[in-house]
Design a protein around this nucleic acid. Sequence first.
DNA 1: GCAAAAGTGTTTCGTTTACACCCATGC
DNA 2: GCATGGGTGTAAACGAAACACTTTTGC
Lengths: 243, 243
Amino acid sequence: MEKQLYTYKYPHPAVTTDCVIFSFDGNDLKVLLIQRGNNPYKGYWAFPGGFLNMDENAEQGALRELQEETGLIPNHIEQFHTFTDVDRDPRERVVSIAFFALIKPTDVRGGDDASDAKWFKLKDIPRLAFDHDYVFRIAQRTLKEKIHFESIGFDLLGENFTIPEVQRLYEAILEIKFDRRNFQKKLIQMDILEEVETEEEFSKQVRNTNKDSSSKGRKAKKYRFRQEKYEEMKNTDIFKLEF
Amino acid sequence: MEKQLYTYKYPHPAVTTDCVIFSFDGNDLKVLLIQRGNNPYKGYWAFPGGFLNMDENAEQGALRELQEETGLIPNHIEQFHTFTDVDRDPRERVVSIAFFALIKPTDVRGGDDASDAKWFKLKDIPRLAFDHDYVFRIAQRTLKEKIHFESIGFDLLGENFTIPEVQRLYEAILEIKFDRRNFQKKLIQMDILEEVETEEEFSKQVRNTNKDSSSKGRKAKKYRFRQEKYEEMKNTDIFKLEF
DNA sequence: GCAAAAGTGTTTCGTTTACACCCATGC
DNA sequence: GCATGGGTGTAAACGAAACACTTTTGC
């Protein structure tokens, strides 16, 4: 514990990063929250995050905090807003650079054991610490907008997935319903998926993805993303918003 | 000149705001730059901005700096990215929250006289100070994306304008060309404009807008935005990107 | 009178939407 | 065997794209 102090001629706010981490289990979109052990907001849930070091940029800081607090390595991370209200932290002036992160179901750890981190379905999110309710609203809106331009939805899916899964994902993100037949048609027409042989049905991947085996109906075909299409896809919208 | 110092247990970056200010003169999209009088980057052009005060949030700080440095009062201001690279400022660690601002032609001042501020057409922008070349690229991309969702284009037009002006504006922002007839048809169909009587042709507004009177062809009809349509329009895209 | 810019309508094409029946699986 | 979820095709409606000629104005 050194006692070095840092002095400036003008007051400086503290700078932190916060991460809104989304994942998708095949049915529901979820976010990871951490329960605070200390005041302020002791016992409240909040997004993982922490102070920015002087030798890292914001993205590196966000990834480091994520690793430290949750062990997660996201598939996609992206800055979406910086929150600067004067009183957003009662301790001192804190400016928070917020990111959203997308995690594949195969990478989901944390929240399984008795840790202080837990995955919440969007509709089960409790009242959050600090201004994190507001942070979440902006994150959700940004995700909706982004998916309009970029195919980041696939960053939330495992290697193999079914078309109805993709549909549930897009419906969860955009909070609208699509016609099953039109959705399937459009996705197939885009020529970005290839069918996966049924042998692979027994792989660990699949069991993971279908873990809630309350599946009653007909078994859906498995697809994978055609890697060679990735570059040209990255900046393509998949489903236009139609309200 | 007080000599008070501010001390912290951990190092804090400095926090600034920067503004990319767009305006439109009826033909070209322009941005306002300020020539630096001091090192570092003395003589280089840069976006206006400055340090965030402790009693204001980022938007307030950006508006204050804008007012101080340029006297401009923007029609629309919006945070778009926070730049955090470790070495982006050689003096100290500086995190910059960047905004873009849209100014109506009637509000354009600054850069007219012999000040250190000047409006540049996008294609005439020189090499900029700090990482502002990168800041500009992100600002331009954000503007393109935003205009897809929101009708912020009208924040760049004066009270009265012609449809060909609107078209030139959208073409400048999106860097694509539209068919004149389809553009006009779509804009009219949206039912958000009303024609302005020709009497008003002699108003000061109009002369301002048409200031580069190298106009050779037929005189275009003047329109104004139907205010009562504003609320429902705010979140509507006008022209979808089609490359 | 000529060049440059703006006004105007129709047809074609592609995309989106709406919609119904059959099939496989788990209980 | 029945309820649930998934597979598949077609027709209608809508919106986007392509396209040419006339009018006004400044030089």
